[in-house]
Simulated scan of single mutants.
Amino acid sequence: MIVSGASVAGAAHLDAGRGCEDAFRAVRTDHGVVLAVADGVGSRPRAALGAHLAVDTACRVLTAVPAPGPDADAGRWSAWTADRGARLAESCLRHARSLTGGEDAGELAAALLVALVRAPWVAFVSLGDCFAAVLTRTTGPDGRAERHERCHLVLPPPVPDGPPPAWTTSPAAPLRVRTFSLWEPELSGVVLATDGCAPLALDHPSARGLPAAAGPQPNPRFLPALAAALRRSGGAAAPLQALLAGPAAAERTGDDLTLLCALAEDGREWS
């Protein structure tokens, strides 16, 4: 398995004299790999610290209890994911209150997205406006995976006119945390990203001839090409860092950009 990630400060943040307020972390265990990305709420004075606190807490909570096995049923995976999600939301809020003395935990507000990958299962826990996609690749009768990889948006960003998202420090976070488990036998990659990456990785539905109600669609040229580049580099983050820091990203978004992924290596099983 290849695990690779990068964070880049957005042009608007740099112009304002602010550093990157995103964070990411990945932890390998004997029962899967945990991926976590967080986006500190930019209007808050300790947003960057809040993002780092969120990913550290996420990795600790999701590794504290072993995930079900690959052959476990959907009920066990859903129950485990829901339990870890509730514990994570409670832990983020408790730690933020402890650091701030309980006066204004909102200073550490962040969006948080976590995934535990134990192929063919992926468990997701989300607070805020980050998004997630998975990559799939069909395996032929000879057991070899085809070269063409497909991208599926499994957790889209919230709709602009929808209710405001709950952050890690929102009092209602334990009630509004989103959890779900995905079984995908053709899984070849899992990608988590903060909302600054949306203009690069996602297309407006009109680009597919779909109505606006269909919501954002994965850009078929972005994530599969990035996954191929990361596999060629053996997981070195240089291609990802260069892409996020490049002129195309600066033209499309001024926000911080963070992307973290776990990929099955070409011709190999998940490990």
Rank of each mutant, 00 (worst) to 15 (best):
D73V: 10
T139Q: 15
V134T: 10
R118H: 10
C59N: 08
A64C: 12
A132R: 03
A54F: 05
L240M: 04
R221I: 03
W270F: 13
R25G: 08
A38W: 06
G162D: 11
R252A: 08
W121G: 09
V117D: 13
P239W: 07
L257P: 08
L99N: 02
R87Y: 01
T258K: 04
L49S: 10
R76V: 14
W270Q: 13
L14Q: 14
A132P: 07
D266F: 07
V27A: 05
A193Q: 06
H148A: 09
A172V: 14
A48F: 02
S188C: 12
E103F: 02
F131G: 05
L202W: 01
S188V: 01
G10K: 01
N219G: 04
A67C: 03
A225Y: 00
G106L: 12
S170D: 13
A133Y: 04
A166T: 06
A54E: 07
Q217K: 06
E107A: 14
R18W: 04
A58Q: 11
A173P: 03
P70I: 01
A111C: 15
P224V: 09
L192E: 01
R221Y: 11
P165H: 11
S233R: 14
V114M: 04
G215R: 04
G10A: 04
V159E: 12
L135D: 02
A89V: 09
L62D: 15
V134Q: 14
L14R: 14
R231W: 06
P160A: 07
V3P: 11
A225C: 06
P157S: 12
A132C: 09
A133N: 10
A12E: 15
V27E: 13
L260G: 08
C20T: 15
V8Q: 07
G234L: 08
P165M: 11
A193M: 14
L243C: 09
C151E: 03
L175N: 09
A86N: 08
G189Y: 09
L88S: 02
S91R: 15
T179Y: 07
L53T: 10
R176P: 00
C261Q: 12
W183A: 04
E107Y: 04
T63Y: 00
G254A: 04
S126V: 04
